[in-house]
Simulated scan of single mutants.
Amino acid sequence: MRADKEVDRSKMFAVGEFWKDSLEDLEEYLDALGTQFSVFDAPLHYNFKEAGDRGAEYDLRAIWDGTVVQKRPIDAVTLVDNHDTQVGQALESWVSAAFKPLAYAMILLRPSGYPCIFWGDLYGTGTDTTSKGEGDSEGDSNGPERQQPVSQLEDLIRARKLYAYGDLRDYWDHMNCVGWVRTGDEKRPGCAVVISNGDEGFKRMEIGKEHAGEAWTDVLGWSEGEIVIGEDGWAEFRSPAMSVSVWVVKDAHGREEFGKR
């Protein structure tokens, strides 16, 4: 940036890390700053951790309870894991691999908060303790066990960029299967998302009468086949067990990019 160029500091984005699993403490921290400021949503991370640990026993309708993004979305930087919560670190509270795609769908494909992607979730992290060098009987085991990248996280990021636009319609009415619709805008299509932390899930949701007759498919490829939008603008979307599906119109711009690395 040129030294002689005046900076409009009112438009600068700032985030702080005050790692407390307490919405009350985080609100006190934010209020004391005296200006709009964002903070990492630690309570949301711990909700994701609990949800992953408990599996189908966890009520997904409680996932936002006590979080910054629920109470003060403009101040919330949402995350799943970070460098401190990963395996082997001081605040280790790693979200289970099975739940991570669901968690990332929640922070990437909804309008509230500023989502933050952990490098280790995108590329993998830690030490690969399974490999052994020539003449090395122990292998490289001087660090935490390697954690694999989150399955198709790149595609979830791509889905946000291409399809997560417009108004939000929530269908948050079952403890193990929830869904929502992003209605799109004048230039970009929307999407329909279904998440299940139990058995295969189904959710009847409204897309709009203007979409009647369209064929929609899951860009992640985890749900096979097509879903045709009814004349009333509604359709029943599905998700595999302990998974997420992101449905968009079959011929939507950018569909050819999914599944590539």
Rank of each mutant, 00 (worst) to 15 (best):
M1W: 01
M1Y: 02
V7Y: 00
V7K: 07
S10G: 00
G16F: 02
E17D: 11
L23R: 05
L23V: 06
E27W: 00
D31G: 00
G34K: 03
V39C: 13
F40K: 01
A42G: 00
Y46S: 05
Y46V: 03
K49A: 08
K49S: 08
G52K: 02
G52N: 03
G55I: 02
Y58P: 02
L60T: 01
R72W: 10
I74F: 06
A76Y: 05
Q86W: 04
V87S: 09
Q89K: 13
S93H: 15
A97C: 00
A98W: 15
K100I: 04
A103H: 05
M106R: 09
M106P: 03
R110V: 11
P111F: 12
S112H: 13
S112I: 04
G113C: 08
G120N: 11
G120W: 09
G126P: 09
G133Q: 12
G133Y: 11
G135P: 10
S137T: 12
G139Y: 11
D140A: 13
S141V: 14
G143V: 05
P144Q: 07
Q147E: 12
Q148F: 03
S151T: 14
Q152M: 13
R160Q: 14
Y163M: 06
A164M: 06
Y165S: 11
L168H: 06
D173L: 02
N176P: 02
V181R: 07
T183S: 14
G184K: 06
P189H: 11
G190A: 10
C191V: 05
A192T: 13
S196A: 13
F202A: 12
I207E: 08
K209W: 05
G213H: 12
D218W: 10
W222K: 09
E224V: 08
G225P: 10
I227N: 05
D232F: 11
D232W: 12
D232H: 10
F237R: 11
A241R: 14
V248G: 01
V248K: 02
A252N: 14
H253Q: 15
R255M: 15
E257P: 02
E257D: 15
